[in-house]
Design a protein around this nucleic acid. Sequence first.
DNA 1: CCGTAAGCGAGACGGTACGTCCCGTCTTGAC
DNA 2: GTCAAGACGGGACGTACCGTCTCGCTTACGG
Lengths: 209, 209, 209, 209
Amino acid sequence: MLSRSHPKPPRTGRPRSAAADEAILEATRASLVDLGWSKLTMSDVATRAGVAKTTLYRRWAGKNELVVDAVAVLFDELELPDLGSLSADVQAVVLQFAALLERPETRTALMAVVAESTRDEALRTRIRDSIVDRQKRLVLQGRRRAQERGELPVEQDEDAASTTADLIFDVIAGAVVHRVLVSAEPVDADWARRFTALLLTGLGAAASA
Amino acid sequence: MLSRSHPKPPRTGRPRSAAADEAILEATRASLVDLGWSKLTMSDVATRAGVAKTTLYRRWAGKNELVVDAVAVLFDELELPDLGSLSADVQAVVLQFAALLERPETRTALMAVVAESTRDEALRTRIRDSIVDRQKRLVLQGRRRAQERGELPVEQDEDAASTTADLIFDVIAGAVVHRVLVSAEPVDADWARRFTALLLTGLGAAASA
Amino acid sequence: MLSRSHPKPPRTGRPRSAAADEAILEATRASLVDLGWSKLTMSDVATRAGVAKTTLYRRWAGKNELVVDAVAVLFDELELPDLGSLSADVQAVVLQFAALLERPETRTALMAVVAESTRDEALRTRIRDSIVDRQKRLVLQGRRRAQERGELPVEQDEDAASTTADLIFDVIAGAVVHRVLVSAEPVDADWARRFTALLLTGLGAAASA
Amino acid sequence: MLSRSHPKPPRTGRPRSAAADEAILEATRASLVDLGWSKLTMSDVATRAGVAKTTLYRRWAGKNELVVDAVAVLFDELELPDLGSLSADVQAVVLQFAALLERPETRTALMAVVAESTRDEALRTRIRDSIVDRQKRLVLQGRRRAQERGELPVEQDEDAASTTADLIFDVIAGAVVHRVLVSAEPVDADWARRFTALLLTGLGAAASA
DNA sequence: CCGTAAGCGAGACGGTACGTCCCGTCTTGAC
DNA sequence: GTCAAGACGGGACGTACCGTCTCGCTTACGG
């Protein structure tokens, strides 16, 4: 669960309903599925959640922030399986990620909030903190495991390692997102295999350089 | 200029103003810069263009279509320079593309229309036709030129060649978009060099396999 | 019909629907009857009139102004009958006025807008122009007729005549309103007779002094 | 102080704060002055009184009841002076009453609660008990004093006397209220003199008839 | 002198109406 | 038949109060 940081928890007054929070996020996802981002309204979410509109606005500044929180949790389902080789692990994650992007709630929401974030610095930060940066763990975890297996050398220069991890992350995430949402072509086992081969070969060569 | 297909040009009555078309698209871009996608309104565009709202709706079905046409032309500015090597050419295009995505009108519009397109098949087609598929010419042109230079072998299997081109396109476009719009990190000469190295190495290995 | 003064009638664009105006005022009166002033809402009026809320706000600044216009027309129904004597005429008008105040739409609306007008100069002016001052005609007409009959002397001092007319108006209107809306006692023929006797005797003595 | 009737005083638990009552009524009057009837809110009154909203609702059913209690006490300040003649006494009360109605808290509140009372029988009763009927004492006191002075005959018929008192009350209260709140003209010594003359002459004639 | 029951400030709750904004359509008269 | 202008029915917005409901206290009485 994302902590929306109540830095000074108020001590008086009726406490906020914890149940409402989850009901609202669930209702938001349902509304995304049924209506999509652009037709989703705060009123509709409130109605579905059995909650007053004011309760929504008391907790979230607007549609953008609400949707980010609603879908963020879905991304935490991604995990790196241990299939014995880096290539197999990457292919599996690629397929998982593509499957997540095919779900109607993420499909319609992700690009929309990214689009909004281009004019809203706070929203961009929220997206990065809640969604994007969290998934870098997969890259780091994959590298560590590959190094343990001896598939990749242990890097000495930490800065370079971090820069490379960022590059890999942009390539994987970008390519899969583009394939699914822009090209609208399927990410199947074959594509995953071909893409992973390209990535790992390029990466290996870069590492040895 | 994109043809918005007037298959049967109307023969009677006052003809449509040709000047209005360009004024509207220019006004749309200006509105995107000033207001961003989500705050852009048809009324605002009409006012900026000195045109009535009815005139907009006579030509475009809605905001989505209008914005696609308004920004599509910007993507046609991309071109593959001839710098003597495939690597240099790719790096140059990557930098061009990133610069285009940094412009406020494309920055705010591109992801937004892609998001809308996830629930609107016609819009997705329009985006592909007007924007995405047009840029595949750059990939094809780059490959042809590399083959002429002997940097890449001439492929026999046309299907495989096409599939590979699609993959490359998704990787390049996806990675750059993700870097600029999601990670919000700069695409500078260094990143372009590193990314291109990864791509071309991976590609070379894949081709020889 | 009250003219809401379109000082510079716009020459372009779709003209405002004249039918909507009357439908809205009628709906307002109906809503006053059903709900009373304090529960009347702009949305309800719009719905009853088959009109969008925006159409209401395009024509009236708010509930107060709308209700003033809606009930003003009812007050124009009052008229001074010619029953042969000033006393009979006054009694008849008193009964008419009381009957008007018994109607639910005026009953609930009149005091409410007067109350609002105590903090809104523009509203007070509107009420005076649309409702109150219009009824002074009854006092003036009554005096003229009584003078023609020889029941009252023709006054020479116009200022004094006007001041007296104002006094009479405040006494009649005030007493009837207070009886009906505050004391909530019936204004029947007996009360009208007694009140008229008090008024005319007092008035006659004042005139001869 | 108005008794708000605690018919069965609760015997256990913490007793209600007596100080809070007066603070709330005072805050209500202050809020009436600053905001007027229609903008006065329970929350605002609670804040001004340094009290929780629940405390208000524990004591009063709503805004109407609260305001009636808050202004009722002001009307008890009216008193009939003994200036030696009925006419002088009446003029003095008229001026007192007008001054009371000029105060912003009564000005905005009185008509508003009367308006509300047209649809709320309990409220009408409360207003009559707390405000209106209390002031009839002034009429009765004035008559008694005038009878003692020999200015008015002692009436035999008690019913008729009561009916006449009601009529006088409606005429005085109605005329002054109408002059101040509707006509929005000043009630000065001259107006009071002229009005009193009209009233007493008419009354004298009626009595002798 | 202690338990208990009501009162208390605070503030979240489900609602309703507000007045504004934009949507996409329709209705004018001018060209 | 298109144009600029602008009114139209509709619907969502985000805000403000409503009157109610928890909360964790405080405060007085009665055992």
